[in-house]
Design a protein around this nucleic acid. Structure first.
Lengths: 248, 248
DNA sequence: GATATCAGATTGTCTGACATAGATCAATCG
DNA sequence: CGATTGATCTATGTCAGACAATCTGATATC
């Protein structure tokens, strides 16, 4: 292996991962992050676990604390870790050596509420289409269960938001392409963080609840066109709610 | 310039007169970025312009250089600025006070080449659908022109990649929702940075060139269904190219 | 048992210093 | 005269040490 004149540990001999090379690692903080990924995987750290302290990383990797901080800052701004004064740095997403996190930014203008939903719509619809074709029996059963629970909770006047999230997450999972769940999830986070939380009111209208039940039935039955149609209607209801909100 | 005191805008709030104002102690680098946005807008800086040096920002804003660096690191990791040793920090995207850049990360696994194209497909198709319905006459003419140029360049054996980019960018522009262009553009960048550049070979097959011409005709004629169909075929050709590449 | 307090741990910030790569410009040589 | 080379300046990259602010957990107290 590469056991050259390395005063630092394995910062210089980054493993040339198979096929998916983690972008060009020339700057020091990039290599720090690469080393951190290896370290995290070796230690089996997962979401919620705490990373070693900055000073310890600094000693262990043989780089200054500022470099460690800048590397972690990059991860923090991308949402990969969360850092709290006094508490430490904790992992916020799953991460492994054969995955690479690509930063993307959405530039939102003041009037982009409808536009945000506009890009979410085709993604949701495609996810439903794929799920209706590819879902396993187990997944179809889960989707049905969540839909029942959703209708029940709504009828009982209880909080159905969490079940709604699980319902859609199951669909995204069933479509077979995890990127759909990732993208839609983050766009959903945009909705929540940028719009709902500051505005104080949820944008998801209750009128879509019954459509969720019909969507589940069609999807589980493999009725692709019908399921897609219901998903489209659900998305359009969000548009209406947004317009109603803007008018006020 | 005005007095130096006014440039030190309420970042520290004055240590002696520090009231109990900050209930929610926003982190310092966050405030640095907010101040930077104001500064950029006031100075009229745009893409390609250089920001003041770290030391100057440190003096003007009254915070340590490490804080400036961490703030800029966050912007760098989100692709908002690029930084080069000796050269300085330059703006990479338009930024203004009434826009917010939302960080999103795509976690790519080793086998997600097809999956990346999988999420791009519904976005491209929806963009074509919207463009076919909403494009202005001027935009339709541009799309036709670029398609002609594309076919001509391909027939002449010249490099047609730039024209291809312009062709699609015009469609994204014509769809009326700038988020489509943003998302697709960044996903395209993922393709290029992560896959094509390390692998050394372009994935866009030449067989799709003729389809571009048909797509342009259908789109310009407002024939929505036909245009969508051609866009779908183009995207599927990319899938085939990817599969061919994986088999080798 | 519940609360208050204290010590340790950890990130946030500042300061100062040096290293390194890009940019600029003048001097040199063909 | 033009182009290359070299020196110098500028700005980011990295390091080290220090203190502040805050959270965690254990201890002490009622």
């Amino acid at each position: 292996m590469s056991n050259a004149k390395s005063t630092c540990i394995e910062l210089n001999g980054g493993p040339p991962a198979a096929l998916l090379r983690p972008i060009r690692s020339q700057t020091l903080d990039r290599r720090v992050l690469d080393a951190l990924i290896v370290m995290i995987e070796k230690a089996g750290l997962t979401v919620g676990d705490r990373l070693p302290a900055e000073n310890e990383l600094s000693n262990q990797l043989g780089v200054g604390r500022s470099t460690i901080r800048e590397a972690l800052k990059a991860w923090q701004s991308m949402g990969i870790v969360t850092r709290n004064k006094g508490a430490g740095t904790v992992l916020a997403v799953e991460i492994s050596a054969n995955s690479v996190h690509v930063p993307i930014t959405l530039k939102l203008e003041a009037e982009s509420l409808l536009r945000t939903n506009g890009v979410r719509r085709p993604l949701e619809i495609e996810a439903v289409r794929l799920a209706a074709m590819n879902a396993t029996d187990l997944q179809r059963q889960s989707i049905l269960d969540y839909a029942d629970r959703l209708l029940g909770e709504h009828a009982a006047g209880r909080n159905w938001r969490k079940t709604d999230r699980l319902f859609h997450a199951t669909i995204h999972d069933a479509c077979g392409n995890p990127l759909f769940g990732q993208l839609i999830g983050q766009i959903h986070r945009v909705f929540h963080d940028i719009y709902e939380e500051p505005l104080g009111t949820p944008l998801l209208g209750e009128s879509s609840i019954t459509l969720h039940g019909k969507l589940a039935e069609a999807l589980v039955a493999g009725n692709v066109a019908t399921a897609v149609q219901y998903m489209l209607e659900i998305s359009c209801i969000v548009d209406e709610e947004v317009r109603k909100h803007i008018d006020e």
